[in-house]
Design a protein around this nucleic acid. Structure first.
Lengths: 211, 211
DNA sequence: GCGTTTCTACCTACACGAAGGTAGATTATC
DNA sequence: GATAATCTACCTTCGTGTAGGTAGAAACGC
């Protein structure tokens, strides 16, 4: 059979596939890979477990796709937000803001990344790593700022570990407090307070604190 | 230190018990609770699996004990390190240094905490929570600095999320990079560079960036 | 237009391995 | 010889992956 198939593809299967990915992101974020059951995902979607296998051959593949989608979306989000900024400091702050906003609006992604960082080194078959991607994004900006003399010589790794980590924590830690201290990371006031502090820290890190 | 109630009891079992706890901390840190197998722990200790059950009735109890030991040791470590400091800023830096040093010398604890923060709210039966404990420690110091006017009004939560998170990341993230970028968090040079940056951030956060 | 066929998107049922926990025997220690 | 410590062997549960089936839509032949 000579192939002439996908002219106007809009099978309802695509919607199901996306629903499975959404549900899986939620379940993997809540429970972690090992504790997450395909049964949970199926229930959230409203289908039976083997139907998931129809779209994703194995649990690991489903997870890998969830992770890949998160990285892609995050990287894309960062690029869009940085498009307007020219000044290195401005670009650095835009980058950090992008991370913060992305994680706040998609806390499941934050928790998946949080778990990822706890794991041991990269799995062989999954070359896409959060920290690598994130580091590359940051390195470009930092290198520019340092080369123009606008930043003090500072390692991108330190910015990542010292500041970007805060954005993750801000989101993940919200649910960790008791009722008295719990906060909503998406609350505009709360978010802007944290953002302001993150900017202060970033300026301090690159040596632009009060100049 | 740890409970030593029965006076002339066989120390042999106590040693095994501790060996199990040490091995379990390692395995739980590496794999997370769900993926960790008691078989792995037993193998690391050099005993058979049911022998673990002789000391800990169930996997969950073993894990809870590991977690409790970590929190106790960390809190103790912080108290000792802060004993000498009087000035609020000095005390804050001592607290952060204590966290950093504790996590660096016990990276398994760092990874367990990292996973913990990814989980949803507190489990009912396990009242001891990292973030609660850590926050209480920090709140005392921050409240003092703010009341004396030495700190700008800043929330302890922000210090926790913005700065303490960095220490965790610094340790956990070390193994996440590719071979080219991997670093050893315990390397003295590396550690002191990160510590210096953390101090800069802390001073900036409380408004003491340049003294 | 209408039967036939094929494909999509699900389903039920089951087989199999993996892991936690249990029972009771066995060895070491005093 | 009693008690602590560890073992072997077994049971049970649970979750994945697989095999195979079915309703309905789309494509096809005439």
């Amino acid at each position: 059979m000579s192939g002439n198939r996908q002219v106007s593809r809009q099978p309802r299967g695509d919607a199901t596939r996306q629903a499975i990915l959404d549900a899986a992101e939620r379940i993997f974020a809540d429970l972690g890979y090992a504790a997450a059951r395909l049964e949970d995902v199926a229930q959230l979607v409203g289908i039976r477990r083997p139907s998931i296998v129809y779209y994703f051959a194995a649990k690991q593949q489903l997870y890998d796709q969830v992770e890949a989608d998160i990285f892609a979306a995050m990287h894309q989000f960062v690029l869009e937000r940085m498009a307007g900024a020219g000044d290195p400091l401005e670009r650095l702050l835009a980058l950090l803001d992008a991370w913060l906003d992305f994680l706040v609006q998609r806390p499941t992604a934050a928790r998946i990344i949080q778990r990822l960082v706890a794991d041991l080194g990269p799995r062989g078959d999954n070359p896409v790593r959060f920290s690598e991607t994130a580091l590359r994004d940051i390195e470009a900006v930092v290198a520019e700022g340092v080369s123009t003399g606008q930043f003090r010589p500072v390692s991108a790794m330190h910015i990542l570990n010292g500041i970007a980590a805060g954005a993750l924590f801000y989101v993940c830690n919200a649910g960790q407090m008791g009722q008295t201290r719990a906060y909503d990371p998406a609350d505009p006031d709360e978010l802007e307070r944290f953002r302001a502090m993150m900017h202060v820290l970033a300026r301090a890190a690159v040596g632009q604190e009060a100049r």
